[in-house]
């Protein structure tokens, strides 16, 4: 829903010449290039880092669980040898 509003709002707007010097020189192609590279630069790090972090957290949590179970195993063993 929010996404639709964002996209709709974004498309409604058109070139308002806030700065005649900059915008006057710009073509539609170059404005598209700005929008495209903005998206590229925004999402590339999020995807790369996100992927690495997801992998990392999964591995760490698995290992923590493993450690935990080993430690619990040690405890059990201790109890057994006592009893």
């Amino acid at each position: 829903m929010l996404a639709i509003v964002v996209v709709a709002g974004a498309l409604l707007a058109d070139a308002a010449s806030a700065c005649t010097v900059c915008l006057g020189a710009q073509t539609e192609a170059s404005r598209k290039a700005f929008v495209g590279t903005t998206a590229f630069l925004t999402f590339l790090p999020l995807m790369v880092v996100g992927g690495i972090i997801a992998l990392f957290v999964r591995r760490t949590l698995a290992q923590e669980a493993l450690d935990e179970s080993r430690r619990a195993g040690d405890l059990d063993a201790g109890v057994e040898s006592q009893g």
């Binding site: 020189a25 710009q26 073509t27 192609a29 170059s30 598209k32 290039a33 700005f34 495209g36 590279t37 590229f40 630069l41 590339l44 790090p45 790369v48």
Partner: peptide, 18 residues
């Protein structure tokens, strides 16, 4: 380093488009 290249590629596209 990946982001360094991403920056240069973006710059390239912008200048090329203009």
């Amino acid at each position: 380093e990946l982001m360094l290249f991403a920056g240069m590629i973006s710059a390239f596209f912008i200048v090329k488009a203009a």
